[in-house]
């Protein structure tokens, strides 16, 4: 009884994700052809059911984005990479690209460091405390990003709470410049994106059967080693999922950098906006968009490869 089809190369973390505590239970999921929909509906009917979504998807997503991206290589002189050359040639644009990735990386790392203990703590909660904690984590998601971003502007401005608190404590003599800095962008983005890191990590931690921890302890693992050798590797899929999600959203984020970063903190997304709305250079905007997309895909592929290598290395001890 193998959960992976025998022809596939073994992937430790795929196995880790699908391994049910009692493997006879896993066997039932291993037969997708016998699911309700697969058994009842013919493929043609299924295609018909999916058609509305497909049409909306093509019309509202694939076509406009495709057209926008195509614009970047299709100039007056025909097919050309001039827009991409400009992107690499001009030091300003390189700086903006690097700054975007640096901020994306920082936001991801800070979120990871904050989210992991939080997610771990969540798995220990039950009942009302659990519901309250989840509500606190999800509540920001339900309030407008605009509101939250302006709230940070209020907090961080010259006469804001942060500066007046530091002044009255005597820690500083004159107000710090917090707003329109990288710091402001980082703080607000971490705040906004934290749930996207907490939830995947929580769900993978939650999926670790209690018996695994007990087994580790009975085999001589102290709590720290139990965490290092069992909990951490088994939560890696959630960590990778959260990192990809936060990084990809962060490098394309617009509102927060636009409002809290100011003109000196241009990022790729604010630059695209500038190119498209002020300069009306759609083709360069398309090139920037394509670069962002490529970077996002590349980061996903790299992280997955890294995880695959890590899990094979872990599997052999």
């Amino acid at each position: 009884m193998s959960i992976n089809p025998p022809s596939l190369p073994p992937s430790p973390l795929r196995a880790a994700r699908t391994a049910a505590p009692v493997s006879t239970r896993g066997a039932r999921f291993a037969a997708p052809r016998r699911t309700l929909a697969g058994g009842l509906y013919r493929p043609a009917f299924l295609a018909l059911l999916l058609a509305p979504l497909g049409i909306v998807y093509v019309a509202a997503f694939v076509y406009p984005i495709g057209a926008f991206l195509l614009e970047s290589v299709w100039t007056k002189e025909g097919l050309s990479l001039a827009n991409y050359a400009r992107l690499v040639d001009q030091p300003l644009y390189v700086t903006i690209l690097l700054r975007t990735f640096r901020i994306g990386l920082y936001v991801t790392l800070i979120c990871l460091v904050l989210a992991y203990p939080l997610a771990y703590w969540l798995t220990r909660l039950r009942g009302l405390p659990f519901s309250l904690a989840v509500a606190c984590i999800l509540l920001p998601l339900w309030t407008s990003v605009l509101v939250r971003t302006y709230a940070w502007a209020v907090l961080l401005r010259h006469g804001g709470i942060v500066n007046s608190a530091l002044l009255s404590l005597g820690l500083i003599n004159e107000p710090l410049t917090l707003l329109y800095t990288e710091f402001a962008v980082l703080v607000a983005m971490v705040h906004i994106l934290l749930p996207f890191m907490v939830l995947p990590i929580y769900s993978s931690l939650r999926g670790i059967p209690r018996d695994l921890g007990r087994a580790a302890q009975s085999l001589g693992a102290r709590p720290a080693r139990e965490f290092l050798h069992v909990v951490l590797p088994l939560s890696l899929p959630g960590v990778v999922g959260g990192c990809v999600m936060v990084f990809v959203i962060a490098i394309g984020y617009f509102i927060t950098p636009a409002l809290l970063g100011g003109p000196r903190m241009l990022l790729v997304s604010t630059l695209i906006n500038q190119q498209v709305t002020s300069v009306l250079n759609w083709s360069f905007g398309g090139a920037l968009g394509a670069t962002l997309l490529a970077a996002a895909l590349l980061s996903i592929v790299l992280l997955r490869m890294l995880m695959g290598a890590a899990s094979r290395w872990i599997a052999e001890g």
């Binding site: 973390l13 018996d211 695994l212 009975s218 599997a315």
Partner: peptide
Amino acid sequence: IVFQSYALFPHLSVSA
């Protein structure tokens, strides 16, 4: 201890 759920570490090979 041997558990009903086996409690094998799914990310480790049999020998590990």
